[in-house]
């Protein structure tokens, strides 16, 4: 069973969304709806499955509905039509008390512009979710301090958010989300407001934390490199429609339409594609020059062994973890995978 399942979500913004819904279901485009009824289509028949423990990245340009989508998961926004299931239970059927309880224990959220409470110290900010859970002061502070240390902010716990830099503020946001110990973390363009160096730092920190914690993360971004780096699966939204869902390699190698193609056009493929994807299987290895082979692991990215190939000008053999030969990579495979289609 999927951890989170989104079934045919529609979201229409405007005065009378229900009256416009049939039109949208009949397949009218966003522009037509806006012109005829003055309503904006936020999401148009989006269905998704997110598995436990994976990082699902939802990508799209601004206005594509990705922030709207993530807010449906904890019902900060109610859908016009459709269903959201978390661990098989419908989020839509929760009454107000259940919803509050659900938000306290099941999901936590990190915001684009941090969403920190300016009148609370770092410690109080990180402890906010715990306070909502009804934890006593000592326990709250103990857990909050642990999380502050986990994101490397010890010493700053009595500062106010505005006394910190952007990167540090987002670490507070991250620590606050981690503190509630919920299985699911929603990250709404969490690193978009940070400068590139700090962003890359935070991405690494998130990957490290995730390797220990194994949470289910839903990450929103407009940055393809970020989504390729973080995502186990990527969903691409365009104008409220889900265009493609797949692994990073799927997205880069087989873009579903022109929109996705334009997106992945400039990506550094060597960074994304692993050796096992492009290798010629061992049983089709006739005619390959097997002298002076370079050994690479099947999970290595092309980027990592590309310099060796260029220096030695010879072919690769790809092995799995046990050392069995799985296949070979020649210049031909390299060319076809790296050339922009």
């Amino acid at each position: 069973m999927a951890k989170i399942e989104i079934k045919n979500i529609y979201k229409i913004f405007g005065n009378k969304p229900q009256s416009v819904l049939p039109l949208v279901k009949q397949g009218a485009t966003k522009e037509e709806i806006l012109e005829q009824t003055g309503h904006t289509v936020g999401l148009d028949n989006v269905s998704l499955k997110i598995e436990e423990g994976e990082t699902f990245v939802c990508m799209g340009l601004s206005g594509s509905g990705k922030s709207t989508l993530i807010r449906h998961l904890n019902r900060l926004i109610d859908p016009t039509d459709g269903e959201v299931l978390v661990e098989g239970h419908s989020v839509m059927s929760l009454n107000p008390e259940q919803l509050i309880d659900f938000r306290r224990h099941k999901m936590s959220m990190v915001f684009q512009r941090f969403g920190l409470f300016p009148h609370k110290t770092v410690l109080e900010n990180v402890g906010y979710g715990l306070e909502m859970q009804g934890k006593i002061e000592e326990e709250k502070n103990k857990i909050a301090m642990e999380k502050i240390e986990a994101v490397g902010l010890n010493g700053f716990e009595h500062q106010y958010p505005n006394q910190l830099s952007g990167g540090m503020q987002q670490r507070v946001g991250l620590a606050r989300a981690l503190a509630t110990n919920s299985d699911i973390m929603l990250m709404d363009e969490a690193f978009s407001a940070l400068d590139p160096l700090i962003r890359s730092d935070m991405q690494k920190q998130l990957i490290d934390l995730q390797s220990q914690l194994k949470k289910t993360i839903v990450f929103i971004t407009h940055d393809l490199d970020e989504s390729l780096r973080l995502g186990d699966h990527i969903g691409i939204l365009n104008a409220g429609k889900l265009v493609q869902v797949g692994s990073p390699v799927d997205i880069v190698m087989n873009p579903a339409d022109a929109y996705v193609e334009a997106f992945v056009k400039d990506v550094n493929r060597a960074k994304v594609i692993k050796a096992k994807i492009i290798m010629r299987p061992a049983n089709q290895s006739e005619g390959i020059d097997k002298a002076d082979l370079i050994r690479v692991q099947e999970d290595q990215f092309i980027e990592e062994f590309l310099p060796k190939i260029v220096c030695k000008n010879s072919n690769c053999e790809v092995i799995d973890k046990q050392g069995n030969i799985k296949g070979y990579i020649t210049n031909k495979e390299l060319q076809s995978s790296l050339l922009k289609s």
Partner: peptide, 13 residues
């Protein structure tokens, strides 16, 4: 700030 209110909501206030 709307995001601050959203944060309070998201943590179940």
């Amino acid at each position: 700030d709307k995001e601050v209110i959203e944060a309070a909501d998201a943590f179940g206030a």
